[in-house]
Design a binder for these strands. Sequence first.
DNA 1: GGTTTTCGGATATGATATATCCTTAATTCC
DNA 2: GGAATTAAGGATATATCATATCCGAAAACC
Lengths: 162, 162
Amino acid sequence: MILKSQVEWALHCCAILAGLPEGRYLSTKALAELHGLPKEYLSKALQSLSQASLVNTTLGPSGGYRLARASSEINFLDIVEAVEGSARSFTCTNIRENNPCRAEGYCDSKPCAVARIMWEADEAWRNTLRRVRLSDLVSILSEEVPAELWQSTFAWVLKRAG
Amino acid sequence: MILKSQVEWALHCCAILAGLPEGRYLSTKALAELHGLPKEYLSKALQSLSQASLVNTTLGPSGGYRLARASSEINFLDIVEAVEGSARSFTCTNIRENNPCRAEGYCDSKPCAVARIMWEADEAWRNTLRRVRLSDLVSILSEEVPAELWQSTFAWVLKRAG
DNA sequence: GGTTTTCGGATATGATATATCCTTAATTCC
DNA sequence: GGAATTAAGGATATATCATATCCGAAAACC
């Protein structure tokens, strides 16, 4: 049960987008080169963010991506689900129905107990991600990343935004 | 990010094993027929449980599987990790290292902030599963499943255990 | 008009989940 | 002792999905 690598990419890209000056866009090319990622494939992750309305896009030179709303209004779950989908990690195939001792037409009133417990764990995972805002990540990064590196990174990336 | 179907199978099988009389074994064949599962493939899941020391096995007729310890001493995470493995769902490839602005030989003191948050969610998932004991599942099932079905199921399964 | 960009479709490839088969060794029953 | 039954594990086949690349269309900028 492994998340797509695009989840990692999307999170890092959003962290960068969150630090951009108002109204500026960043291209796939710039984000790919900054992170050392395959441009064409990263593009798919960014498209997922776009479809989820987490980012806005514009075409042409100086085009690219920017956050669709404030980084305090975007949480980790938004981003993770945008690329990973929102399906639960546990799928119940209702194998209890195959029990040969079940009477004909017997109907379970509740979803399977096993599934309920597994889904509860899933909810705990989602709740944790929901509680972390993108702005929280930005705060942590700006504390931990040396100011010089932080600034030169944005200078580097903005130069590529034209 | 989907769990293997074997996780579901293993959990249901453990629930049955937990209800067995002391010392009785249940074969792959019986468990497969009860749940309507492919015997050969279910066997792999049971082997995983065996390797994790969650069940004991014995050979020959009337052989099969039984729990290695009390159902109150086995939790959901034990079972899930036995078949799914214990790797975290998020793997950090440290793409921040590809930042072209990083100074030569620069070394991050902490693991990536993104990874730490994702791992925290992972822990929340694991903790939820850790808190649920197999005996809890048995309690729920014996409440929800009609007593008649519950009894006939064990009668059915024990007949096949020889 | 030429360049740059996002977007979506098509396609290729690699890894992994699913599933089956077969052999070996241990155990039980006759 | 011999036949039947069982778990264990290796080998293999298939299907699904993640990864990755390429291309054409439409839009924006110069």
